[in-house]
Design a protein around this nucleic acid. Structure first.
Length: 283
DNA sequence: CCGGACGCCTGTCGGC
DNA sequence: TGCCGACAGGCGTCCG
């Protein structure tokens, strides 16, 4: 593996960004032996336990996967659970490169590259567990993958019966479906032409089908955009670049709707900024 | 069980 | 220029 192949991975972590990160780091991790874990800041969402270094040293990485917004690294003994929180990012860097202020840990591999974890706000997590990862409380109760088989209109319709919560909160609930954060919730609802405040149980079966399809479409488009831009972010300085996904509604309050020209509104729903076109997404 | 509020952190931006 | 509040893409936890 040559030193040029440093890939700064972007970290605007909703599902597409985590998926992009996964695809970027996987080739560099699979089959690698961990030389050591260097922790500079233990205080993430949960403090990194003191014995983590000892447990990880000498282990071989057997698989790297994603579940919702969690990255799961399967080791010879146990698993690593990694979450990027609000501001986390992961890059593969030469083990000799100097960390920046918020680069909280390096997973140093035997062949000269390290996985470097950065997270200014420290809402993310990096935890080792001896158990099968699907047993871990953080992962155990997660809803289906939006891009997998268990997620469709019938599922959304059935689960939403008796739920008065706004549909936007509903689709951002990780017990309902994983990976839909604030940006893509807004985008999917715009695409489905649904007002974010509609009670979840007011949606008919066909509307739920439209919504499920919109969620899949928006996430797939973002993954493709991330995959494309990944090439553009190959740089040697290691600064994580940021690409802007094509957003039609998120952050566009005060601007004209791209469908009809009506001014886009912003409201708070569940303490999160929500954007919608009052004409395309009527109450 | 459900829905809503809160807090964990640092960084940035707009207004005065 | 500096200060101050608002806000930021997540999510576990607590309370009614």
């Amino acid at each position: 593996m040559d030193a040029i192949s440093i890939i700064p991975i972007i970290g605007m972590p909703e599902l597409p960004e985590v998926e992009t990160t996964l695809r970027g780091i996987k080739p560099y991790l699979l089959g690698q032996d961990i030389r050591e874990l260097r922790v500079r800041e233990r205080r993430l969402r949960y403090p990194i336990p003191e014995d983590t270094e000892k447990v990880l040293a000498g282990q071989r990485i057997q698989a790297v996967n994603r579940r919702g917004k969690y990255l799961l690294v399967k080791l010879g003994y146990g698993n690593l659970i990694i979450h990027l929180g609000m501001s986390g990012s992961i890059r593969i860097v030469p083990s000799t490169s100097a960390p920046n202020r918020h680069d909280h840990l390096d997973l140093v591999m035997a062949e000269g590259l390290s996985l470097r974890y950065r997270d200014p706000r420290r809402f993310g997590l990096f935890l080792w567990t001896p158990d099968p990862v699907e047993h871990h409380p953080l992962v155990r109760n997660l809803g289906p993958e939006p891009l997998g088989n268990g997620f469709n209109g019938a599922y959304l319709h059935e689960l939403s019966r008796g739920r008065s919560t706004p549909v936007k909160n509903f689709i951002m609930d990780s017990k309902v479906v994983v990976g839909v954060g604030n940006i893509y919730a807004n985008e999917a609802l715009f695409l489905a032409r649904l007002n974010p405040n509609l009670p979840a149980d007011s949606l008919s079966h066909p509307i739920c089908q439209t919504l499920a399809e919109a969620i899949r479409l928006v996430l797939n488009a973002a993954i493709e955009a991330g995959g494309t831009s990944l090439r553009d972010f190959v740089r040697e300085d290691g600064n994580p670049g940021y690409f802007t996904p094509n957003l039609k509604i998120y952050g566009r309050h005060g601007k004209p709707c791209c469908n009809c020209g009506t001014v886009i509104l912003r409201v708070k729903i569940g303490q999160r900024s929500s954007f919608f076109c009052p004409k395309c997404q009527p109450q």
